[in-house]
């Protein structure tokens, strides 16, 4: 799984940081999404999918195809 975020359209609602805090954070000053890990490990992927679905501004994009390189 490959994760991308579009900070230009982020509205800082915090749903990602709430749902998958190991993968998403919000920067201290602006509240914009900060991606901590673009290749989340297997055990975090379910939470990442929920976070992507819950993002009110749809700024999280997931690419699911990779199976080999992620830890």
């Amino acid at each position: 799984m490959d994760v991308r975020v579009d900070r230009d359209r982020c509205i800082g609602a915090g749903m990602c940081a709430l749902t998958a805090p190991e993968i998403f954070d919000q920067d201290e000053d602006e509240g914009l999404v900060v991606l901590l890990n673009t290749r989340p490990p297997q055990e975090r992927r379910a939470a990442v999918r929920i976070a992507a679905g819950a993002c009110p501004a749809a700024v999280i994009t997931l690419t699911e195809q990779d199976t080999s390189t992620a830890p």
Binding site: I11, G12, A17, Q26, E28, E30, G31, L32
Partner: peptide, 11 residues
């Protein structure tokens, strides 16, 4: 929104 959202983060 950008002016305010940093003041209402999860943390």
């Amino acid at each position: 929104r950008r002016l305010l959202m940093g003041k209402f983060t999860v943390r």
